[in-house]
Design a protein around this nucleic acid. Sequence first.
DNA 1: CTTGACTCCGTACTACGGTACGGACCGTAT
DNA 2: ATACGGTCCGTACCGTAGTACGGAGTCAAG
Lengths: 140, 140
Amino acid sequence: MTISAAAQEAGVGVETIRYYERRGLIRQPPSKGGYRQYPEATIRQIRFIRESQRLGFSLTEIEELLALAAAEDTTCGDVCSATEHKLAEVRGRIATLQRLERELEEMLCAKDCTAPKRDCKLLEALSPSSPPPDGEHCCH
Amino acid sequence: MTISAAAQEAGVGVETIRYYERRGLIRQPPSKGGYRQYPEATIRQIRFIRESQRLGFSLTEIEELLALAAAEDTTCGDVCSATEHKLAEVRGRIATLQRLERELEEMLCAKDCTAPKRDCKLLEALSPSSPPPDGEHCCH
DNA sequence: CTTGACTCCGTACTACGGTACGGACCGTAT
DNA sequence: ATACGGTCCGTACCGTAGTACGGAGTCAAG
């Protein structure tokens, strides 16, 4: 299986495979006459990498997962704790985004707000050019 | 106010201010003998930029917000629609992360799982080296 | 035997938001 | 007058995950 066939199989670009190889994520395949020949196992490995990325792991973290998979004394618990770690991270990101969501909601104008900008409290709050004066505003 | 005083005031680094200037986010301050002199308005503008970043806007988007603030015919609604747009984006990201959260939860082992890796279904599912065989597994 | 497609390799470039560096210049205090 | 710290500018670099490029080599079909 040549590199382009492997790329097709694994659903990535040719350059991506070369990149994974440079990074040491997949090992050098045997080559016939200078051309890489990919075994099935490497295709599975690439699919694993993409799936892990989808789950939020970075390539560096995936490197560690692969090291776990390669080590003799790895237990299932090792993998679980890596997963738990990532889960905590994802939950943290969700919490941050939800705080932002609330802040944006609070900032948001009523839909019928068509007042010119100098009457817009939101824009004034954002505006760098002048400190907000007092008075009536179209949104809050 | 020199650049380092301005940086202190605004809570950013000196290089950050120079970077914003290069990007056109803040305008060139008047200079005394080749040294930048910052007016209060620019400090406010930098604070605005940081606040907007915190709310999830990229520098490119902030450029647009600043253009809105500068344009004569900008209405409050214009700002609101930008905010709504960003809110939708944030909600999308939350939804994606929540899907990942559920997937990670489902993958997660029981805590007392200490079986060696070859009995770990999770690791086998992840492992690139061999297709998972059948049998008993410590986690599911 | 030649053509065209594929592959090789190293290097440079993308986006993002800065950070770091180095040599020159300036302003103030001593 | 001179030392010290701040500032100037352009340029290069950080990390992440690739993507693009160019010139050379290789393979299979016609």
